[in-house]
């Protein structure tokens, strides 16, 4: 009796790992990534690579002339660029697995009851654009620059982390109605 109720409890979507345990797992994954590949995890890099590849396929001359794109076009094999794309495919698979395991799979838009779904989506979209621009400027996002950077004591990692969290705290007040 007791066991079955417990079981249904951790599969109903409300169970989360203890944050310290989760953090330790994440740290071990990051450690393994550094041990095997010599660099950290990333997320925005995969999107960047997708954009570069897409634009390069459509307008190769444009990318070759651009100072930014041509940094990332691989004339020969640059495995580390593709690497991130495969890593993100893994992220999707891993998250899906966890979602199935803990019963969190369903289509929905999560937002505070104080705002409409439409407003939430507009803000998510704008936030995405800003994150896209910022991650390119800082050469990485929260995973690639801040987390992986901190793990190897990169000064850029700590600076980016403080800038992200510091600004987010300030703007959290501005946008508090969206969340609480």
């Amino acid at each position: 009796m007791e066991k079955s109720s417990e079981k249904s409890n951790w599969r109903n979507g409300t169970f989360y790992l203890n944050p310290y345990l989760g953090g330790m797992f994440l740290g071990l994954v990051l450690l393994a990534t550094f041990y095997i590949t010599g660099r950290g995890l990333g997320a925005s890099g995969a999107v960047k690579n997708t954009v570069v590849t897409a634009v390069h396929t459509i307008a190769p001359r444009h990318t070759e002339n651009s100072h930014y794109y041509n940094k990332f076009i691989s004339t020969d094999t640059q495995p580390m660029n593709n690497w991130l794309v495969f890593e993100v495919l893994g992220v999707l698979a891993g998250a899906l697995l966890s979602g199935i395991l803990y019963g969190r799979l369903n289509f929905k838009t999560e937002h505070s009851p104080k705002i409409t779904t439409k407003k939430r989506l507009i803000f998510a979209f704008s936030g995405g654009i800003l994150f896209g621009i910022g991650s390119q400027l800082a050469r990485g996002c929260t995973s690639g620059a801040a987390l992986s950077g901190m793990a190897v004591l990169s000064a850029a990692g700590f600076i980016t982390m403080m800038a992200i969290f510091g600004t987010a705290y300030i703007f959290a007040y501005v946008f508090r109605k969206n969340w609480i």
Partner: peptide
Amino acid sequence: AIVGGIIMGMGFAMGGYCP
């Protein structure tokens, strides 16, 4: 790094996710 971090921080507060 600082400017990019600030822009990402704004995006974080608006979008609620990081990549």
